[in-house]
């Protein structure tokens, strides 16, 4: 329920295995083979980066807090797991998701303001008719089966900050890794606390003193192995193995792996989660904003979805 992830609709209805998610998406494409062939699109990751950027732009204009933008991104990801993107106007869906997420996260904006900002951002693809957004809201809520409460990793991060004695910088870096994970499928694959721990682990391994997350992609394999080291040491501790020695690493990493070893947290899931985000950082370099935008705009225009 609202405070309990384990009883939540998020866990019951919106947590998938990779295979399930692939299948959902494949089914959507199969149902609309003609559309899919006519309008090629970049891979989901790149679409997600594009959406993330657009949400950021809209959010900035509206003064929306990060948490609401995070919720909006989860809404969009849920929605497009059930609806073929080429049947929708993504700009309208983005604005609607932000509008709805702001209401859910207790920072509401008037529909007219959201529409006018959307229109200012995407003049060629966005109607000034507020009823379009109102209608899309029905569509969005309906596809989400009214399940709009999203459990975010941010809360786990705040709770663990003291437990693990994270510095401000480490917490800030973890926070920004959490921000990044909304560009991946991770929110549909893992529990929020797994994602939070993944973010903390990466932040500790990366060290905030480094130039930040962008440097991650260049040394992804180094990071991956450092993270793996911490996790396998936790695994060994858990299995009752010898006192772990995570050689040459900071004591925070040690503390995290000790803490993990004592917890019931699924270490396998954290490993999995870590690999996913690292591979995302690698892929991020290949992202081509211009191509992504053109391909989206093409089907929106050709199909008159902006009307």
């Amino acid at each position: 329920m609202a405070a309990n992830y384990w009883e939540s609709t998020q866990r019951k209805h919106w947590q998938f295995t990779r295979q399930q998610l692939d299948e959902l998406r494949k089914n959507l494409e199969d149902e609309d083979q003609n559309l899919v062939q006519m309008y090629p699109l970049p891979q989901v990751r790149h679409l997600s980066i594009y959406f993330n950027q657009q949400i950021g732009r809209l959010g900035k204009r509206l003064g929306v807090r990060q948490q609401a933008m995070a919720t909006a991104q989860v809404y969009i990801r849920r929605f497009y797991s059930k609806v073929e993107i080429r049947r929708t106007n993504p700009y309208l869906v983005i604005a609607t998701a932000v509008y709805l997420a702001c209401k859910m996260e207790e920072c509401p904006h008037h529909i007219r303001l959201v529409v006018s900002e959307g229109r200012a951002l995407w003049p060629d693809f966005f109607s000034s008719d507020t009823s379009k957004l109102g209608e899309c809201e029905f569509f969005l809520i309906s596809e989400m089966s009214s399940q709009m409460i999203v459990h975010q990793p941010y809360r786990t991060l705040s709770a663990l900050q003291a437990t693990l004695s994270l510095t401000q910088e480490e917490a800030a870096l973890s926070w920004s890794i959490i921000n990044d994970h909304y560009m991946t499928d991770l929110p549909l694959l893992f529990a929020p606390h797994i994602i939070a721990i993944m973010a903390i682990l990466l932040a500790l391994v990366l060290r905030p003193t480094a130039t930040g997350i962008q440097s991650a992609s260049s040394s992804a394999s180094t990071i991956a192995s450092a993270a793996q080291g911490a996790l396998s040491s936790a695994g060994q501790l858990k299995a009752g193995g010898a006192e772990s020695k995570v050689g040459g690493e900071r004591s925070e990493v040690q503390r995290l792996s000790n803490w993990l070893a004592e917890s019931n947290i699924d270490i396998e899931a954290i490993v999995d989660c870590t690999q996913e985000i690292i591979s995302f950082y690698e892929f991020q370099e290949q992202y081509n904003e211009k191509l992504t935008r053109e391909q989206i705009n093409r089907f929106v225009k050709a199909r008159g979805l902006d009307k």
Partner: peptide, 12 residues
């Protein structure tokens, strides 16, 4: 209405 819809969907 949004709150009521979301909360009622979770509560059991």
């Amino acid at each position: 209405a949004v709150r009521e819809m979301a909360l009622c969907s979770e509560l059991s």
